[in-house]
């Protein structure tokens, strides 16, 4: 969203420049970044480029009226969560009912009582913030702060579709902490939690920019590596595996922690398997790495699933 500064963006859509000036003056001390549009078309372009946190929408505009704009915003998945406050000189309850039925968050009549408009605006911004937070929370793993399984599933499915469409390289690494049960049993659950948090922090640090690291399950992590063929993915996975083995653990300095990694990737070009098959292949490589003695990476290409996996041990 609007990352230019920490202030939420509020977009005013009103054909009267007088109203723009008025609200600029009246909302000067609010913690917002007020932007303005004088017609619906301009507004829709601005919303697409930088979705605002709240929209103040005039009903009576010459080219496209506010109801139509509201309908478009609520029909679009990218914008339907943005709260819209209707500003209107029309005072019939029929218009208010129509506005609320179309999904307006609030309705303020002109001339504005500014104290009221400010309070209603703040309430909308608060609501928008909470809705976003909730959406984010739903996909964030509480212990590690990485994306959770549901986040992974969405991103993975998007990436596979993209790689299939454009025949681009793509790789997936699954990491599993070796002997995690023993760490928990020997040093206690807080030590186990610290291990998961420490590895998550390292993944966040060590992954390249387009990579997506998630907590896949209990002591299992996943790294999606877009535009990365399996040979490069194996190098990234190895770098991470080694870095994890060198981490120091205050609760058990004498016991290092290692991970086993299964990588499955596509070089691009060939027909690619579906996301499930791909995931199973990475999981099978992880199992092979465990079976071969842990603390190693096993990589294979999904382009030629019959080729024997390539193992690297630490």
């Amino acid at each position: 969203m609007s990352a230019r500064n920490s202030k939420p963006t509020v977009l005013l859509i009103d054909d009267s420049v007088d109203v723009h000036r008025l609200l600029h003056a009246r909302l000067r001390h609010e913690h917002i970044n007020l932007t303005t549009a004088t017609n619906a078309r301009q507004a829709l372009e601005m919303i697409a480029a930088d979705p605002p946190a709240t929209i103040l929408l005039d009903l009576d505009m010459p080219d496209m009226d506010g109801f139509e704009v509201l309908r478009l915003l609520k029909d679009n998945a990218a914008t339907h969560n943005i709260p819209v406050i209707i500003l209107s000189g029309l005072q019939s309850s029929e218009d208010k009912v129509t506005a609320f039925d179309l999904g307006a968050a609030d309705y303020v009549t002109k001339p504005f009582d500014m104290a009221e408009l400010r309070a209603r605006l703040r309430a909308c911004l608060r609501m928008h913030h909470l809705v976003r937070l909730l959406a984010e929370r739903a996909e964030v793993d509480g212990l590690t702060g990485l994306g959770n399984r549901s986040h992974f599933n969405k991103r993975w499915s998007e990436r596979v579709a993209e790689a299939q469409r454009h025949r681009k390289p793509l790789s997936l690494a699954l990491l599993d902490v070796d002997d995690f049960k023993r760490i928990n049993d020997t040093f206690g659950h807080p030590a186990g939690d610290e291990v998961l948090q420490g590895i998550a922090a390292l993944l966040a640090r060590e992954c390249r920019k387009p990579d997506v690291a998630c907590r896949y399950g209990g002591e299992e992590f996943a790294i999606i590596m877009p535009e990365t063929p399996p040979s490069d993915a194996a190098l990234v996975a190895e770098r991470i595996r080694e870095a994890i083995s060198r981490l120091e653990w205050p609760r058990h300095p004498e016991t290092p922690v290692t991970v086993s990694v299964g990588v499955a990737g596509a070089t691009g070009g060939a027909d690619l398997p579906d996301e499930e098959t791909w995931l199973e292949l990475a999981d099978r490589n992880l199992y092979t790495a465990k079976h071969q003695g842990r603390n190693r990476t096993v990589t294979s290409s999904v382009d030629a699933t019959t080729a024997p996996p390539l193992a690297r041990a630490g």
Binding site: D18, L22, P111, F112
Partner: peptide
Amino acid sequence: ARLAHQLKGAGGGYGYPALGEAAG
């Protein structure tokens, strides 16, 4: 009508309620 409409909205906001009413 459009000019009057805009002035109706602005009049009260700028502190001239009678102007807004007359425009309305």
